[in-house]
Design a protein around this nucleic acid. Structure first.
Lengths: 346, 346
DNA sequence: CTGAAAGCGCTTACAG
DNA sequence: CTGAAAGCGCTTACAG
């Protein structure tokens, strides 16, 4: 004891002891329960008590301990946001975080390198008793079930899960690809190639198969389908392969904007092709760089803000009522008629 | 009671009750303390007990409750990552999150719209008793003090705080700008303009003043300094202003890559200038788009991976020992001799 | 409206 | 090595 107080006296940089609701109660001359109620929306506290507590709170600089609150209420104000490293629009995470914050929720961010790292993520978010999960990655059905059993609301973004009833908001990939294919065909393109994203990416698979199907309907068989990863370099290499192939295409449908940008750069700067005179290139996403003057992509813009808002609305509704029925919301994309492809006049 | 059990019997979708360490203890036939020790690295548990617990853990699917653990240990495994909306490299957040995760820490992400939203952020991260903070934004001294008093380790990234002793890791902005200025001058540029970022951005201020100073040393007075925000559009508008100005520059130093990209697009696509024949443009950051073939920027590449690793090392060391003395680590950038500027041969 | 008391699920001296 | 017990800082019936 003596030693301890000596230490305390000699150290000017003593750690500030956190203020608890008991400290506030003592200062205000009320019970600890009253202090707690003060911070509980809708709890009954008289105006007089309220005033005393407010004063003490300000004087002591009290902030309720969210950890203790979560322990007793068995639910935190944390929302897990799970994204893939190269997956979605980077701005997506940012917008989502800000929207959550505006609603009093905090963002626990998980960035997956491979979608298979999900095991670890699921453990973590369960350990923290998150209030909900927004996932822009594919989660194995096992994990979806686990969350549902534990009544942790889950909303997918751009992952439809046709086979399982899950909440999701997405952009209509098929419709978008149909629009792109129709535009290319209407402008007379017939030698059309497709650059796919990674084969384990559901988004890529859906876009590629929708495009291929629409082409088939139009009686067009893709001259080639090249698989790449969702990177700039992947786009460049895909373009190189296509140019070296037996039948050079006159139009390329890329599974996303990043690939389209890579294709364009390779076509122009390595192969000396003019766009769209020699070759047309279209993407998908509506990402910012795709709209830069150097690219000016023909693409499908996903309504990111709408999708984020919808996802959060759905999540909040299910945090309030975990029994709420499953819902899938699908937004149309928006055709951006840029200059990276030769299109028919309208 | 009767009502409750009736309900339970009639509802097949009953919420799975979370498993606690008491459940595991009962199942394993040991005390709850033993279970707790099992999950405490270095705690003494006999091999026999360990085996019994492991079995029960697997059978019940037990996961320790991180919230309860944080309450008692008074520290969570959460690290707050505070970034500005348009601030740093978007990949930075991603790399940081993954590095933290690899060290068993979770990321609580705060995206600030204006650096003034910091008040709210500080409250939140304190309420969650985060183990540490990595900030890529400027925090008012008041907040820095608050964290230090509460012994929450704080590391700034690219915010030097000359006046206060704080931990920071940064890229040497001045050195980088000196290199760029020297390269431009050596190649004979004399009519040099500067495109600055927002005036409340310390990063921009430091880059601009370093460049201006080095130019002054070389006897060159900038033909103009234009202020823009750190966006593509900002770059385009800045270029437009410069072209309309009295003395068109033959070289432009931009406060970051994004501005340089905007300038290049405006110069080429709106003004019909050739780069670097008609005008040289340099940036700063080493961002991915700056390296795309359409831009191929002359810029300074910040060693993002090194900086993130250093920041986490510093943070971890201070989580282990909060008294550890303050340290500033400054890394050199790397000159990228791209094709966006006419440079002297070496 | 208010206070005393139980309890959320852990960790950690403490005694054996 | 092991278990009983106290306690982290809250919320929330419960009784007044």
């Amino acid at each position: 004891m003596a030693r301890r107080s000596t230490q305390a006296a000699s150290e000017g940089t003593d750690k500030a002891k956190p203020v608890t609701s008991y400290d506030v109660a003592r200062e205000a001359g009320v019970s600890q329960s009253a202090v707690s109620r003060y911070f509980t929306p809708g709890a009954s506290v008289s105006a007089r008590t309220r005033a005393k507590i407010l004063k003490a709170v300000n004087k002591l600089g009290y902030q309720p301990n969210a950890i203790a609150r979560s322990l007793i209420t068995r639910r935190s104000s944390l929302v897990a946001v799970v994204v893939a490293n190269l997956g979605f629009n980077p701005e997506f995470t940012s917008i989502l975080g800000q929207s959550l914050s505006a609603r009093g929720l905090n963002t626990l961010l998980f960035t997956l390198d491979h979608e298979s790292d999900a095991d670890h993520v699921i453990d973590q978010l369960w350990q923290y008793r998150v209030a909900g999960v927004v996932a822009a990655v594919t989660l194995p059905p096992r994990h979806v079930d686990m969350l549902s059993q534990r009544e942790i609301p889950l909303v997918f973004v751009n992952r439809a899960y046709e086979e399982v009833p899950v909440n999701s908001v997405s952009c209509d990939q098929s419709e978008g690809e149909r629009w792109l294919v129709d535009e290319l065909c209407a402008a007379g393109h017939r030698r059309i190639a497709i650059v796919s994203g990674p084969e384990d990416s559901p988004v890529s698979r859906q876009r590629v198969s929708s495009a291929a199907e629409r082409l088939a309907n139009a009686g067009v068989k893709p001259v080639e389908i090249v698989v790449a990863d969702f990177t700039y370099q992947g786009g460049r290499e895909a373009m190189r392969k296509l140019a070296a192939g037996p039948a050079r295409p006159d139009a390329i449908i890329c599974a996303n904007d990043m690939l389209a940008i890579g294709c364009m750069d390779e076509a122009r700067h390595a192969l000396g092709l003019r766009i769209p005179e020699d070759i047309s290139i279209v993407g998908f996403d509506g990402s910012a760089p795709g709209q830069w003057a150097s690219y000016d992509l023909v693409t499908i813009r996903q309504p990111t803000n709408l999708m984020v808002d919808a996802a959060i609305d759905m999540l909040m509704a299910r945090i309030d009522d975990p029994q709420l029925i499953t819902e899938k919301r699908v937004f149309s994309g928006e055709l951006v008629r840029g200059a990276s492809a030769r299109l028919a006049d309208t």
